[in-house]
């Protein structure tokens, strides 16, 4: 039987001469909320896009739910891009209808429940939503699919702490780990830490650490950030750059 939902087997990804991921191997079990953390340019988004089948590895294999992660893996994977995900001229309701029409596993009931929880008004045009509102809508769309794997690329980037907090509440209220695994990339670790089961820490295209948050907390005490700074080392100046 297949116990790992995601498997990377000596995966490298280069963009021309730039190495984004460098011989990375790991497995992710089902039923967890997993954070991918690391400074910008560490390979977080590349890892997510490879898992979504949107990129092909330069070397190695990516297996999702027992199948090679090619473009057609999108039936198993719900991917929320960091950049805009739906047409700006749609209303919120139209965006939901559109997703409902293209994905057979879309759960319209859950989507509506999530809209209410997130206080998104249905007649609003996507274009007119605030930055936080757009992210919340994208999350509603991505999480309303009954896909076994949900990938959220930087849902907290560029948002203020109150909005980040509300997005995390929306996540924990509607994630169902008995049915779904969620992988989130972020460099905003302080708020998301309590919501995570596992963490993958990346630096310069390599995995520095993959462990249960509980173990990391047990070893390093207070919060993931201290630990993150520790594993990423004193020369992680790229942390500051946006």
């Amino acid at each position: 039987m297949n116990h790992n939902l995601v498997q990377f087997d000596h995966v490298s990804k280069n963009y021309m001469k730039e190495i984004a991921l460098d011989d990375v191997s790991f497995q992710l079990p089902p039923g967890k909320v997993i954070g991918v953390i690391g400074p910008n340019g560490s390979g977080k988004s590349t890892l997510l896009k490879l898992t979504a089948g949107l990129l092909r590895p330069t070397q190695g294999k990516v297996i999702v739910n027992g199948k090679p992660a090619k473009r057609r893996i999108s039936s198993e994977v719900s991917y929320m891009p960091e950049q805009d995900g739906c047409y700006p001229f749609y209303t919120v309701t139209e965006a939901i209808k559109y997703y409902n029409s293209i994905y057979t596993d879309f759960d319209e009931g859950k989507a509506k429940e999530m809209l209410d929880f997130n206080e998104l008004s249905r007649n609003q045009e996507v274009n007119n939503l605030s930055k936080g509102g757009k992210v919340r809508l994208k999350m509603v769309l991505a999480m309303s699919r009954r896909a076994p794997l949900i990938l959220l690329d930087e849902p907290l980037a560029g948002l203020d702490p109150m909005i980040r907090d509300s997005i995390i509440k929306g996540l924990v209220a509607f994630v169902d780990p008995s049915e779904q695994t969620v992988v989130i990339t972020t460099h905003e670790v302080s708020e998301i830490e309590p919501a995570l089961d596992m963490v993958i820490a990346l630096k310069n295209g390599k995995i520095v650490k993959l462990d249960d948050v509980e173990n990391i907390r047990g070893m390093y005490g207070d919060s993931l950030i201290e630990w993150m700074k520790e594993v990423l080392g004193p020369n992680s100046s790229s942390l500051k750059t946006e």
């Binding site: 967890k32 909320v33 209220a173 169902d176 309590p194 089961d197």
Partner: peptide, 13 residues
């Protein structure tokens, strides 16, 4: 769900 939202932790926790 209520406790998850209150503490910002996931349902496994």
């Amino acid at each position: 769900r209520e406790l998850a939202v209150q503490y910002g932790v996931n349902p496994n926790t």
